[in-house]
Simulated assay, not measured.
Amino acid sequence: MLTYEPGETVVHDLDPRSKLAVQIGFAATALAHTAPRALLGLSVVTAVVLALARVPVVRTLYAYRFALVILALGPLVAAATLGPPWIDLEAGLATALASYRVLLILLVSAAYVRTTPVRESRAAIQRTVPGKPGQLLGIGVALVFRFLPVVQSDLRTIRDASAARLGTERSARERATTIGLLGLSRTFDRADRLSLALRARCFSWNPTLPALAFARRDAPTLGVAVALLLTAFL
């Protein structure tokens, strides 16, 4: 599961706004360049980011396993044709390169999630985007980071309970329907409880957020972010 984990890495100590800037620059460059040579360079950048943040690659790929299935199926579907020659290798290769770009972006995002507390992410967004839009966006990001792991845990519990009751003997459609319906029901219950908890705690649109300040160690990170962003236009 992708959540924040306290640590003493270089990336943990960076200002969240610097890390967000790197993510934006990296995503812009990855989406702008499709050549294999550019993707090789971005792969090196991704490897450096994961190493600096000490992100366990195997665990991260496992957490993204459902997204990986979709990314893997994309090239196969794109390469298939309804008539001769039945397989379009050029279309499949183009989609494979696009899927690889998305994978690199997901890995860099995993480094951000692992090294940045939710409150700091909210503070970074609200202090970058002014007014109500920034508050709405900050609240949305904070709630997603806190709510999504709980929903994932509920789905795993439902799946394990179904397997313990010989649910694996049912067809794939029956299992998916049962888990989906129970998961939606549990999610709505969680949402109602979250709403009640927010009201009970006098939910504030403008709470006291942690102080953020750029330091000297953020200068190289911001330089990398600017370089990546400029690379997207070259």
Rank of each mutant, 00 (worst) to 15 (best):
A80E: 11
V129Y: 07
G134Q: 03
V113W: 05
A72I: 15
V44T: 15
A28R: 14
S99T: 05
Y64K: 11
P36N: 14
V58T: 08
I87R: 06
G92D: 04
I125G: 08
A51H: 10
R65M: 09
L93A: 09
A51N: 07
A79C: 09
R59W: 06
P133M: 05
L73N: 08
P56R: 07
T116N: 02
G83P: 00
V49H: 06
A32S: 15
A53F: 01
R101Q: 14
V77I: 15
T95V: 09
A53K: 00
L93D: 05
P130G: 04
I125M: 11
L39G: 11
A30W: 05
L104I: 13
R54A: 08
L71M: 10
V44E: 12
S121N: 04
V129G: 06
R37P: 05
G92P: 04
T81W: 07
D88M: 11
V49C: 11
V102F: 14
T128F: 00
A67I: 10
Q126G: 05
R54N: 00
T115I: 06
T128M: 03
P56Y: 00
R101H: 02
T29C: 14
S121Q: 02
G131N: 13
L106C: 07
V118M: 09
T116M: 01
R65F: 03
A79I: 02
A80Y: 10
P130T: 03
T60V: 11
G131S: 02
A67N: 15
S43K: 06
E120V: 05
A94R: 07
A30E: 04
A94M: 06
L76E: 09
A91Y: 00
A94V: 13
P85Y: 15
L82M: 09
A91T: 05
T60E: 01
F66E: 03
R122Y: 08
R65K: 15
A63R: 00
A38D: 14
S109Q: 10
G83Q: 09
P130M: 12
V102W: 04
L40K: 04
T60D: 01
Y64R: 03
R65S: 11
R127E: 15
V129P: 01
S121R: 12
S99C: 12
R122V: 14
P133I: 06
